[in-house]
């Protein structure tokens, strides 16, 4: 069993399909949705953890892709823009999962571990430099 964090971007036509239901029933996957939204122009976004056998995840991903859903393995819901970060560390106390953290307290530099992020968006409203942004 492995867990993979995925970012789905749904085209206008597919937001009403019960894709998550099929991932659970047909591909035996454990789904943990962090954040989902249908936008004003009827596109959809979802950030989720998918747990299961690697092969089942691959097949599930193919099933989702067949609906025209874009699965971006790099750009996730919450993004930390390192160039904008001043390493003030203000975000650290507001991040519930330590996705934003300090590896070395001698140099006090911030790093972001995307896999730990649960998309609570605390960092977005908190960061004084706009270093944390959201794709949706």
């Amino acid at each position: 069993m492995i867990t993979r964090k995925l970012f789905f971007r749904f085209p206008k036509s597919e937001i009403e399909k019960p894709i998550v239901y099929h991932l659970v029933k047909d591909y035996d996957l454990i789904i943990n949705i962090f954040r989902a939204r249908v936008t004003d122009n009827k596109e959809g976004y979802m950030v989720l953890d998918v747990t299961g056998e690697e092969e089942s995840i691959e097949r599930g991903v193919e099933f989702v892709r067949a609906f025209g859903v874009a699965i971006d393995p790099i750009n996730k819901g919450v993004r930390w823009i390192e160039d904008r970060c001043t390493h003030c560390t203000n975000c650290i106390a507001h991040c519930p999962t330590n996705a934003l953290h300090i590896d070395d307290r001698k140099t006090m530099r911030v790093t972001f571990t995307e896999e730990l992020c649960v998309e609570c968006l605390n960092c977005l409203s908190n960061c004084p430099y706009g270093a944390c942004t959201s794709a949706f």
């Binding site: 390493h87 003030c88 560390t89 203000n90 650290i92 106390a93 300090i102 530099r109």
Partner: peptide, 25 residues
């Protein structure tokens, strides 16, 4: 403060900064 946690009045308080030690260095 730089450990990221202080204890005050029996409770643990998470600490962060507004200044950047990294940039100061």
């Amino acid at each position: 403060l730089k450990t990221g946690e202080i204890t005050f009045d029996g409770r643990t308080v998470r600490v962060s900064a507004m200044s950047s030690y990294g940039k100061a260095l």
